[in-house]
Simulated scan of single mutants.
Amino acid sequence: MSDQPGKDEQAAPEGGGGTATATKAGGAGALGGLTDRLSGAISQVAAAGALIVVFIVLSIVAPSFLTADNLFNLGSQTSVNAVMAVGVTLVIITGGIDLSVGSVAALSGVLGVMLMADFGFNPLLGILGGIVVGAAAGLVNGLLVSTVGLPPFIATLGMLSVARGLVLIATGAVAVFGAPESFRLLGQGVLGPVPVPVLLILIVAVAGHIVLTRTRLGRYAYVMGSNSEAARLSGVPVRKHTTWVYVVSGMLAGLGGMIAASRINSGQPNFGEGLELDVIAAVVIGGASLFGGRGTVWGSLIGAFLVAVIRNGAVQLNIGTFYQNVLIGVIIWLAVWWDFYQRRKLAGDAG
C-alpha cells in the first residue's frame, strides 16, 4: 500500500499537473473519509442512546422485562441475530448485501441436526457440519457475485429461494428431532452466570473486529466498498476477497442456525423466515452504510440488541408480530435516510 503513490506519480502527465490533481483528490478523499467515519460514529452513538432509552422505558412499563429469566432469554435470543450480523456487516461494508442469511441458517440448522439424529455424529461434528453448509452457501453467493457478475441482491435473493427449497426437500416440511441432549449446551448452556450464547456473541464479535481492523480481508473490504474500481486498479484482488466476504457471512449464518436449533434441540424447516430483515436492520442501525465503505462490528451488535429489545418488549406488551415488523421496517427507512442525507451533505460540502 505504501508504494502506491509512487505508481500514481509515475503515471501522471509531465509537468506535475497530474500529481497536483492526485494530491488534491487524495486530500479531499481523506477529508471525506474522516467525515464519513464521523457520521458512522454519530449513528452508533444514536443507536446506543436509543437502546438505553428503550431499555429504561420497557423496564418501567413492562415489569416482567427486567426479570432475570427474561434478560437471560433476551441474551440467548439476540445471539442468533448478533452472530449473523457480524458476517452481514462485512458484506455491507463491501457495498454488497446478503438476503439469504435466514434461509441459509435454516438449512444449516436442519442439516446439522440431521447429521446428529440420522447419522450419529457427535454434537461438535454436527455443529461444524452446519457451519460448513453455511460456508458452502456463502461460497456459491460469492462466486455468483465475483465471477459470474450477478448483482449481490440477485445472487443472494436466488440463494434465499434455493436454500429454503432445499430445507423443505430435505425435511418434507417436517421438523427434525433426535439430536443428543448435550447439543442443547450451545444454545441453552451457561458458563458460571453467563449464557453460552452470550459468550459466543463476544467471541465472534472480537474475531470479527480483528478481521476488519487487522487483516487484509477487512482493510480491502473498506476499500472495495468505497470504490471497487479504484481498488481493482490499485491491485486489490477484488474477486478473491469478495468471495471470501460471502463465505464468512454464510459461515456465521450457519453458526446462527445451529445456535437456534440448539435452543429447541431440533431442526425447524420454517426457521429464519424474514430473519434477514432483522439482521440487515441491525447492521444499518449500527451505522453501516448500504452504499458501502462504512460499518463496524460493535455498531452492528448495538443494532442487534436494539432490534432484540424492541421485539422482546413488544412481546411483553402484547404487541403482535405484524406491528413489530412495521416498526422495524420504519427504523430501516430512517437509518438509510440518515445515511443518504449525510452522504448528500458531504457531497455538497466537497463541491
Rank of each mutant, 00 (worst) to 15 (best):
V283A: 02
L38H: 07
I60Y: 12
L233S: 11
F119D: 01
G126Y: 09
G250L: 15
G187T: 11
A25G: 01
A105V: 11
V326T: 11
L38S: 12
T78A: 13
L38T: 12
G329N: 07
G16Q: 03
G29S: 10
I201E: 03
L168N: 10
R164K: 13
L166H: 12
G257Y: 11
A179E: 01
G87H: 05
N265E: 05
V132I: 14
G109S: 06
Y222L: 13
L317I: 10
V283G: 00
P193W: 06
G256N: 10
V245Q: 13
V110W: 05
V140I: 15
L128R: 00
M224F: 15
V283R: 01
I154V: 15
T243N: 03
L38E: 03
A230V: 13
G348T: 12
V245N: 10
D8P: 00
I131E: 03
L124C: 05
G138C: 09
P237E: 14
V57P: 00
K345E: 05
P13Y: 02
G189H: 08
A68C: 00
G178R: 08
I201Y: 04
A12Q: 04
E276I: 08
V162S: 04
A85H: 07
G299N: 10
I201W: 09
S108N: 02
G112M: 06
I280A: 01
P5S: 01
L144C: 12
D69M: 08
R343W: 04
L58N: 05
P180H: 02
F291W: 13
D8Q: 09
S100G: 09
S103M: 09
F305H: 04
N227V: 06
L124Y: 13
P123A: 11
I52T: 15
V113H: 01
Q268E: 06
D349F: 15
T94M: 12
A261N: 05
L128V: 13
G96R: 02
A207N: 02
G320E: 11
L58R: 03
G218L: 14
A135Y: 09
A46F: 12
G32F: 00
R219L: 15
L200E: 00
G272P: 06
G299H: 11
W337K: 03
V238E: 09
P180F: 06
W338Q: 06
V113I: 14
L334T: 07
P180W: 04
A11I: 07
T89N: 00
G303F: 07
H209Y: 15
S146A: 15
G18V: 04
A22E: 02
I60H: 02
V176P: 01
S79V: 05
A136L: 15
G40M: 15
G102T: 07
A28P: 00
L71T: 10
V53L: 15
T213V: 14
R239C: 02
L58I: 08
A41V: 15
F291G: 02
G187N: 08
T89Y: 07
A335S: 14
G189Q: 04
A117Q: 02
G17R: 12
V176Q: 05
T215Y: 11
S108D: 08
V330P: 05
R232N: 07
L74N: 01
H209L: 11
F305G: 02
V145M: 05
